[in-house]
């Protein structure tokens, strides 16, 4: 290299490598146009895999289309599919199962997650190691979790039953978590809570760590008790983060499928048949494509509507 040669940056390399014809075209474009050029592949992808399927699903929801009868005549049914979904007792039973699952998982994950975050925030010795250990369940695949919890719940060989026997004296083989109508809904709540509490913990921990220390110092100067500090400083300031965690977990659990399907298949009977399992059965086992499209749109509108209301409330809390 001569003394006069200056190494080129990557941008300068790219400029020099650009063919003249292309360079002339680009020079004529505005900044806005160039920005659109860069994001247009992403927009096209979004249109192809999100917007188009949504529009197509809406269209199919008004027809009698069945994917396993491609040669059959497609008839318009108006809103008949929607009426059918909303008046189907099996659908309402599935929504009830989903609501039970949603309520208890969110409640338990929020309480336990926040408590763990609060403990970890004390920065006790070894808190880094224990934080990593707590995060392990979250890193597993839901399919794997569903599978091995099936073994953990086995009355004869499962650790869960033996743990219950050890702690309560109830014989291990006398109850079946996933085989009992009363216990199966709780079985799936336990597994989901075990798996996703660390996620809530992380979000709450971020919230707790964002609270400036001087606020607590000022409170101590004012002789506020620990409980007072928690109630008037910690909780209000961490609340937006807690609400965000609730929103994410709510959306995820509303569409829960893989873990529940592997654990119970929706059984015993239809006790744990959540909405997404019913939807899958209607769409890909019964092949009632039009009907299941209507069901999917109803679920989408429900989640979208509830999430919108919730986000407005979240924004109000954040602005306080």
């Amino acid at each position: 290299m001569s003394e006069n040669t200056v190494p080129l940056t990557i941008v300068e390399h790219a400029v020099r490598a650009t063919p003249e014809a292309v360079a002339r075209r680009v020079r004529g474009l505005s900044d806005r146009a160039i920005a659109w050029l860069f994001i247009s592949p992403t927009i096209l992808l979004l249109l192809a895999i999100n917007i188009f399927p949504l529009a197509w699903t809406i269209r199919l929801s008004f027809t009698n289309f069945r994917a396993n009868r491609p040669n059959a005549k497609i008839l318009g049914l108006g809103i008949a599919n929607y009426v059918s979904v909303l008046t189907d007792p099996d659908v309402w039973a599935a929504m009830q199962s989903t609501a039970h699952f949603l309520f208890w998982t969110i409640l338990l994950q929020t309480l336990i997650g926040f408590s763990l975050a609060w403990l970890v925030d004390r920065r006790f010795r070894g808190h880094g190691f224990w934080t990593t250990v707590i995060l392990v369940p979250m890193m597993l695949s839901p399919a794997v979790v569903g599978n091995f919890w099936t073994f953990l719940y086995q009355p004869q060989i499962g650790l869960w039953n033996y743990a219950v026997q050890f702690l309560t004296g109830v014989p291990a083989a006398s109850f079946s978590m996933i085989g009992s109508v009363k216990l199966a809904p709780w079985a799936i709540v336990v597994v989901d809570t075990w798996m996703w509490t660390p996620y809530v913990m992380l979000i709450c921990l971020a919230g707790l760590r964002s609270i400036p220390g001087y606020i607590y110092e000022a409170a101590e100067v004012d002789r506020a008790s620990r409980w007072r500090q928690f109630w008037t400083i910690t909780l209000p300031m961490a609340l937006p983060f807690i609400m965000l965690a609730v929103l994410f977990r709510g959306i995820e659990n509303f569409k829960m499928f893989d873990m529940v399907n592997l654990l119970t298949n929706g059984g015993p009977g239809s006790t744990t048949e959540v909405a997404s399992i019913t939807l899958k059965r209607e769409a890909f086992e019964k092949w009632r494509t039009g009907y299941s499209s209507a069901f999917a749109i109803i679920l989408f509108v429900t989640v979208f509507g509830l999430a919108n209301i919730y986000v407005k409330a979240l924004n109000r809390v954040k602005s306080r």
Partner: peptide, 13 residues
């Protein structure tokens, strides 16, 4: 009745 009386625990699925 066969399921209730004579199967191993946990054979629900």
């Amino acid at each position: 009745s066969l399921y209730d009386c004579c199967t191993a625990p946990g054979m629900t699925n």
